[in-house]
């Protein structure tokens, strides 16, 4: 049932895009990430699950550089990025989305999308005055790309809408499309279908799969079990800040430790 994912994974079986080694992070006395080492192979859709408080979001923030780690390493395409700022990691091809996207006040969907590509010539004040035609050319190309991407994600009609008017699901789609414009080596999606209606969630699944078939690598946190089990392979299970296990959806489903972690996590 995970043929697509296996297709993608076969492209380059031993090529690791993202690797963490013994990542650690504590808040006060609370250890949120306790020596996590994971690898994400190029061309995979890797899922990450775990009960509430397992440390998934903290791990995402450590990988993307929004938290500083206490110990351990993160590499992207074999290159050490542990000491880099979030924006520098993004430039290295490690791009993330957020669980609850904030609305961009006063921006149309087109503008919100156009922030994605980068670095743009037009982001330098100098270029705005001394190579205006280059800026124009680049901006035209980006507008064109925006339109194509929105069409592809079947939300082309929203391009003129204020981004504050979009539904949560539509915003998630825009986020996905925008993250893709950065030309990432790996996309980290933080709960891409949380609060999204089932129809739209299915669309999002389809788009992720399509992008993956074209070679895009994903690491996805998701609470929606049917969604992630259907989409991702392998799946990494976190519990109490540690990697509990990693395996195919079937292996995860039948693993006693996983069941216990979820049941235990639900109790006191």
């Amino acid at each position: 049932m995970n043929d697509d994912a296996y297709e993608g994974a076969r492209l380059d079986k031993n090529d690791v895009v993202l690797k963490t080694t013994d990542l650690e992070k504590a808040f006060g006395g609370l250890v949120a990430t306790d020596g996590v080492s994971i690898e994400v192979d190029r061309g995979t859709i890797t899922g990450m699950i775990g009960p509430n408080g397992a440390g998934k979001s903290t791990l995402f923030n450590l990988i993307s550089g929004f938290y500083e780690n206490d110990a351990g390493h993160v590499t992207v395409n074999g290159e050490e990025v542990t000491d880099l700022e979030p924006h520098e990691r993004a430039r290295k091809g490690l791009v993330r989305t957020f669980q609850t996207p904030r609305r961009l006040e006063g921006m149309s969907v087109r503008e919100a999308m156009l922030v994605g590509p980068g670095p743009q010539k037009g982001e330098s004040i100098f270029s705005l005055f001394f190579s205006g035609s280059d800026v124009t050319e680049e901006e035209r190309a980006n507008i064109e790309q925006t339109r194509e991407l929105l069409e592809r994600f079947e939300i082309g009609h929203l391009i003129d809408q204020p981004s504050t008017d979009l539904s949560g699901g539509q915003m998630k789609l825009v986020e996905l499309a925008r993250a893709f414009t950065t030309d990432p080596d790996i996309l980290l999606l933080d709960e891409p279908v949380a609060g999204v209606n089932p129809t739209l969630a299915n669309d999002i699944k389809r788009f992720i799969r399509e992008l993956n078939e074209e070679g895009q690598t994903f690491l996805i946190i998701e609470h929606d079990m049917p969604f992630i089990m259907d989409l991702a392979d392998p799946i990494i299970v976190l519990d109490q800040g540690k990697v509990l296990m990693e395996g195919s959806p079937d292996e995860v489903r039948s693993d006693d430790r996983v069941i216990e972690a979820y049941l235990g996590g639900a109790g006191p």
Binding site: H87, G106, K121, L128, T182
Partner: peptide, 28 residues
């Protein structure tokens, strides 16, 4: 000129959500 440009756009993004701008690779 500087406002209605990619430069101004990044600033407007920072104003609404600086983390998003960082995640998209902007040196906020």
């Amino acid at each position: 000129r500087v406002h209605r440009s990619p430069w101004g756009r990044v600033l407007r993004t920072i104003r609404s959500d600086e983390d998003l701008a960082k995640a998209l690779g902007k040196n906020t």
